[in-house]
């Protein structure tokens, strides 16, 4: 058991190292890319570029640069932005995290409930009009770019129908901290939640329906029906319960990636200053310390989510528990 945990931790560290090294290499070792020239701007003189190269330490060997940066990020925690030298990385990420977590957590609740609802109803009404309608809607959800859906939502709720009873409650774009203004927090996030959840309701609903339809071919469902159980009980306790196992893996990965910053398109469209937007702005400025900070943060969540999935797996699937 102890060895297994140790191995797991080692794996997590390996993946985090791999991701940070990969990002580092993309920015420093891509042929033709010179970080000093990029920082200096488009028409900077050769001297300026050289000065920047020296100042930021780009003339040192790559491994040294990597180690120094990681040390300042994790040990001394005084790593600052390239673009704004007084701007510290760690506090910036910490300040952005609650926004992203608020956005993703709310959307996650919506998409779990919505996905299960769509999947179960469609599986129960298989091959009827209801099933087809739900699956068509789910497919549309999967086919919509999230940022575009966000713009359409903005158009409806902020402009075209803002003065009607339906959307007059929608506040201006932006984020309100939960602790200071819970109602405002909720109001600003409702539309982003639905926007982000639409895609995942589509994906999860489709996957769950397929899993349930498959489960209904299984012998144990026939056994459950032969036991004289009600259809609801057969669905919930037997078919849904076993179909949820692959669902958990998907959810862990998606949730980890989104909290790690993959919700950036939603954040950009709704003006939420979360980690995704922070990452995106850092990327645009080639602000490498900030990028590394947010990437480490992202990979941390991905890795933790993966580990959590394994734990949940042990809880919900007795087959993976050791005998």
């Amino acid at each position: 058991m102890f060895f297994a945990i140790l191995q797991r931790l080692g794996q997590m560290l390996f993946v985090m190292f791999g991701i940070s090294a990969l990002v580092f290499l993309i920015f420093f070792a891509t042929p033709g890319s010179d970080p000093a020239a990029r920082l200096a701007g488009r028409n900077a003189s050769q001297e300026t570029v050289e000065a920047i190269r020296k100042e930021f330490g780009f003339d040192r060997p790559l491994p040294v640069q990597y180690v120094v940066m990681m040390k300042r990020l994790f040990v001394t925690q005084d790593l600052t932005s390239f673009v704004n030298r007084g701007y510290r990385i760690v506090p910036a990420v910490v300040a952005a995290a609650p926004v992203t977590i608020s956005l993703v957590a709310g959307a996650a609740i919506l998409w779990i409930v919505g996905g299960i609802f769509v999947g179960v109803i469609a599986a129960l009404t298989r091959d009827t009009l209801i099933d087809r309608g739900l699956m068509a809607l789910a497919l549309i959800g999967v086919s919509m770019p999230v940022y575009w859906l966000g713009e359409v939502m903005n158009l409806i709720s902020q402009s075209r129908f803002h003065d009607t009873w339906m959307f007059s409650w929608v506040p201006a774009l932006g984020y309100k901290p939960l602790m200071e203004d819970p109602v405002g927090w909720f109001k600003t996030l409702v539309i982003p939640w639905f926007t982000l959840a639409a895609l995942y309701i589509g994906i999860y609903g489709r996957v769950l329906r397929a899993n349930l339809v498959e489960a209904y071919q299984e012998d144990f469902i026939r056994t459950a029906r032969a036991k004289g159980l009600s259809p609801a009980r057969v669905m919930v306790r037997h078919a849904l319960r076993t179909s949820l196992i692959p669902f958990v893996t998907m959810f862990g990965l998606d949730f980890g990636v989104l909290v790690g910053g993959a919700a950036l398109l939603t954040e950009v469209v709704f003006g939420l200053n979360g980690v995704g937007r922070l990452t995106y702005q850092a990327l645009l400025n080639l602000d490498l310390p900030m990028i590394l900070g947010t990437v480490m943060y992202a990979s941390f969540f991905v890795v933790v989510a993966n580990a959590l999935v394994d734990v949940v797996y042990v809880l919900i699937d007795p087959r993976v528990r050791g005998n």
Binding site: V15, G18, I19, L22, V23, I26, F27, T30, P31, G32, S33, D34, A37, R38, V257, G260, G261, A262, L264, L265, T279, Y280, L283, L284, L286, I291, V295, A298, S299, V302, V303, N306
Partner: peptide
């Protein structure tokens, strides 16, 4: 495994920013 754990959006954006800001030169190919 590493690529799998690497959020796709991050990989895409990192590559795009580096390549699209400066283009790419591999030997004779530019």
């Amino acid at each position: 495994d590493i690529l799998w754990a690497f959020p796709v959006y991050l990989l895409a954006i990192s590559l795009s920013i580096v390549l699209i800001s400066q283009g790419i030169v591999i030997g004779p190919i530019e």
